[in-house]
Design a protein around this nucleic acid. Structure first.
Lengths: 148, 148
DNA sequence: TTGATATAGGACTAATATGGTACTATTTAC
DNA sequence: GTAAATAGTACCATATTAGTCCTATATCAA
């Protein structure tokens, strides 16, 4: 089903909440808002922090705050922070893993597909994610391989 | 890492081999070509068969054969045959699973992103996957959300 | 200085998904 | 009739994922 993990889904929700708020929020408050347990939210927030998407403040009245505006953070940024590089196959992420030499001309094409998907996700900001779906607009432009 | 499963990867390889060959191939011969065990190849081939991408012939000198030309089968077709509908989140595949009402305006956007990814994959045929990566061409057009 | 509160980091457990294997039934060619 | 091949089902081992817990450290306030 080509899906992102639950933790990545939480990460998007957390980032949307944080960018909405603008100010600092504790892990507890955030966990309440997205309806997950506090340790789970904490786990995701730690990853977002080490990826540089949010900054953390320890101690009493500490918490998390976004580093950039909602328009400057993409869905791809958040996915990459939790799941690592966006790649659809092992061999498109790391070279040398495909033992089937004859078929390895597929690898380049997989890389191109992965890049296309990554770009699609990079074009969507958290601000757009948080906004309601606009009506009467073509959802997305179609991507084509081998576009001239 | 937003990846497809190994079995889906096998499915792409199997379909490429079958479209290359054009004629019928046994599960054993196919397993040899893509370097997996015969039962594993068989498992994938059964799914491809029930999805209508290949037709199967039982009995001695039986095997599998593609139903359409390589240019008429997309990567999305093969992925969908193995993994089901292409959707990045649970809620974009099935409605009513998101318990966070306030955040559910994200759902529509997830659906649009999933559609974009699905379209990108639908635009790539097996013929293109099997071909070497062309040089001096822009890899892919960029997808944008909210494209006018 | 002390206590309360909060994140950092790591380890651990449970649940789920995936990948692979085995077995039996059925079909077909020779 | 026999051999060869797919169909279908069930099963197991492993890997991944999700979630929890514990300790250390930092900060604020009384």
């Amino acid at each position: 089903m080509l899906r992102i993990s639950k933790l990545t889904d939480y990460a998007i929700l957390l980032m949307v909440e944080l960018t909405r708020e603008g100010e600092m929020l504790s892990a507890h408050a955030l966990a309440d808002r997205i309806h997950v347990e506090v340790p789970t939210a904490g786990k995701v927030l730690k990853q977002l922090s080490s990826a540089g998407l949010v900054e953390s403040f320890r101690g009493a009245s500490g918490g998390y705050r976004v580093c950039k505006a909602a328009t400057d953070i993409s869905v791809a940024d958040v996915i990459a922070a939790i799941e690592g590089p966006i790649a659809m196959t092992e061999c498109s992420a790391e070279p040398g893993l495909c033992q089937v030499e004859d078929n390895c001309n597929l690898r380049g094409n997989w890389q191109r597909i992965s890049i296309a998907v990554a770009r699609a996700l990079a074009e969507v900001s958290l601000a757009e994610m948080a906004a309601p779906v606009p009506r009467n607009r073509s959802a997305l432009r179609i991507v084509t391989l081998n576009a001239g």
